[in-house]
Lab assay of single mutants.
Amino acid sequence: TDVTFHVNGRNLHLKGADEELLRRIEELIRRGADIEELEKAVKEWEK
């Protein structure tokens, strides 16, 4: 799945995201995470 999140005026584009990653990103956004936290979560998922 390709999806782009718009967070605090910045874009986080995910290519090939699975349901697990999407749920994790949505949860972080609900908690008020900043873009750096979201990018870190994506990097951890990519490993």
Rank of each mutant, 00 (worst) to 15 (best):
L21H: 01
R23I: 08
E44T: 08
E19G: 09
N11F: 14
D2Y: 04
I35A: 02
E44I: 12
R23K: 12
A41Q: 11
V7K: 02
E27Y: 10
K47V: 13
G9H: 02
E19H: 10
G9A: 01
R30C: 14
R31C: 10
L38P: 00
V7A: 02
L14D: 00
D2E: 07
K43Q: 11
I29Y: 05
D34K: 07
E37W: 05
L38E: 00
G32N: 05
V7Q: 03
V3K: 13
G16A: 08
L22Y: 04
R10M: 14
R31W: 12
T1P: 09
V3T: 03
N11I: 15
F5I: 15
R23T: 08
L21V: 08
L14F: 04
V42W: 03
G32E: 04
I35S: 01
V7D: 05
E46M: 11
N8W: 01
T4N: 14
K15M: 07
E27D: 13
D2H: 03
K15G: 03
A41K: 08
K43A: 14
R31L: 13
E44D: 12
A41E: 14
I25R: 00
H13W: 03
L38F: 03
D34Q: 10
N11S: 15
E27F: 10
D2Q: 02
G9M: 02
I29F: 07
E20F: 13
K40E: 14
A33P: 02
A41P: 01
K47P: 12
I29C: 03
E44A: 10
T4S: 14
D18H: 09
G16M: 06
R23W: 06
G16I: 06
V3G: 03
L12Y: 05
W45F: 09
H13M: 07
L22G: 01
I35F: 15
L14G: 00
D2R: 01
E19P: 14
E44M: 09
L38V: 05
W45M: 05
E44G: 10
L14K: 00
I35E: 01
E37F: 08
G9F: 01
I29K: 01
K40I: 14
E20I: 11
D2G: 03
V7M: 02
E19D: 12
E27R: 08
E46C: 06
R23A: 10
L38N: 00
A33D: 04
E37Y: 07
N8S: 05
E19R: 10
T1R: 15
A17R: 02
L38M: 07
